[in-house]
């Protein structure tokens, strides 16, 4: 057996490591968790609270949305229906079958169709959301934001919470 030079052994180790590391990383990012920086003001005040400050970084849980199951109030990242190269991060307001009182959409009340949800940014009026493009197909779901991981002083788990007065109308009627 020929003696291997250290350089060749290095290259071989690098290539085999490469073939392990790249697929594993890609799979983890696709299936388990994804880290993304939040840009823009559409989720203020919850994300990016100070204007001009540094951007928040969130952890997107992709495993929990593998069956496309979300709850109302979750913050989700969705591929923008207007531009497939862009992802948007919004709050789920209504699931399929809910009646939603819209804010400036062409109809004042909307029933969310099957396989769709209604998403809105927290910053009302400064967000390009379902009020401009309508209900979004669940198939565009990318991940659910589960933690804020940067900046460190705002490290927290994100709990689902609906903004006031944005509950779906059918749920309100059941309560009364």
């Amino acid at each position: 057996m020929a003696q291997q030079t250290p350089g060749r052994r290095c290259i071989r180790a690098f290539i085999s490591g490469f073939f392990v590391a790249v697929p594993v990383t890609v799979t983890v990012l696709d299936k388990l968790a994804y880290v993304a920086r939040v840009e823009g003001a559409s989720m203020q005040p919850f994300l990016n609270p100070d204007v001009g400050g540094q951007c928040d970084v969130v952890l997107l849980n992709r495993w929990s949305v593998r069956n496309y199951q979300v709850q109302r109030g979750d913050i989700v990242s969705v591929v923008s229906p207007k531009n497939p190269k862009q992802k948007i991060i919004k709050r789920v307001i209504g699931l399929e079958g809910d009646f939603i009182r819209t804010l400036g959409y062409k109809n004042q009340y909307v029933r969310v169709p099957d396989g769709h949800f209604w998403i809105e940014g927290d910053h009302r009026g400064h967000s390009l959301d379902s009020n401009s493009f309508g209900p979004v197909s669940v198939g565009l779901l990318h991940g659910r934001a589960s933690h804020i991981i940067w900046p460190p002083n705002r490290w927290q788990r994100i709990k689902p919470s609906l903004p006031p007065n944005r509950e779906p109308l059918n749920a309100e009627e059941e309560d009364e």
Partner: peptide
């Protein structure tokens, strides 16, 4: 993003992503 007119595609149904 190179899908052209006339291509046959597999897509998720907009009403049921499964």
């Amino acid at each position: 993003y190179k899908i052209q007119k006339g291509d046959i595609v597999i897509a998720k149904s907009p009403f049921d992503p499964h």
